[in-house]
Design a protein around this nucleic acid. Structure first.
Lengths: 138, 138
DNA sequence: CTAGCCCCTAGAGGCGGCTCTAGGTCAACC
DNA sequence: GGTTGACCTAGAGCCGCCTCTAGGGGCTAG
């Protein structure tokens, strides 16, 4: 009745549980795995079921943040590859992260510019609506 | 030799000129027109060529900002429809704009959260790379 | 024993937003 | 009169990122 845990291992998570914790759909999780966006291969239980560990959830949570800030999947994949290879390539990881950092900064700048125009429009329409309301009141 | 102006009318712009000024591709401009994202129908010159006015450029520039901040085309289209209908529906425009304003705020919040994680990672790798450099120096 | 549920694979499908192609018109210059 | 170049239409294609389908396995509760 409860979600079946693989052998009731404490840190063995089903794909459904990982889906809930990361906010990624079950489909997306399988898709990400195919795309190589997992630093470590997932273990499999009987019947081929995926068994995730806590660190997978942590890693995927990082990926969610990267995605949410617009990092393309190929870049996330490249980053994952570097992490999978282990220590020694921090310079390359740094390059990737810095590039993304700049992109995010640009995005924020563009967004706040857009925000100005949008706020201007909102104020404008607020005024018009308010005045129309007064006219009705007369 | 020079871009042919329709009858050398001062405010008659070709699609190519509008493309340059708005940053939208010629293809995108035609696509937007089909999608109803023009507050006024474009005039046509001989041979069916589009003749844009300055106000079209202004309108499209607004649309570019809306797109850049993630407003979906259907919403932009709805907004365009309201504007095309003329004064009297400012309340509805206000609703649209406020909704988008909130979306943009959310986006900015999410982005800056993401930015924190990314900056953290950058600092981390900077430290690692620096220490590795020192180790080499020894 | 069967209904319900979660899981599996491989691959198709969908959506948003363009982008490009094919095939053609027209005006201008050489 | 041929070439160039910007434009036209209708519609196909593409890219990123999932999302869903078909067809099947297997545990567990009632």
């Amino acid at each position: 009745m409860l979600a079946r845990m693989p052998d009731s291992e404490a840190s063995g998570l089903t794909i459904g549980q990982v889906s809930e914790r990361t906010g990624l759909s079950v489909h997306a999780l399988r898709f990400y795995e195919r795309e190589g966006i997992l630093a470590h291969p997932v273990r499999r239980a009987a019947g081929g079921r995926r068994v995730y560990a806590e660190r997978d959830v942590e890693w995927l949570s990082v990926c969610v943040v990267l995605r949410a800030s617009g990092m393309p999947l190929p870049d996330i994949r490249a980053y994952t590859d570097l992490v999978r290879q282990g220590p020694g390539n921090e310079e390359q990881r740094l390059v990737l992260m810095r590039r993304h950092q700049e992109r995010v900064l640009e995005q924020m700048a563009r967004l706040s510019e857009s925000y100005d125009l949008i706020s201007y429009k909102v104020r404008l329409y607020e005024d018009v609506v308010e005045q129309a309301g007064e006219a009705h009141a007369c």
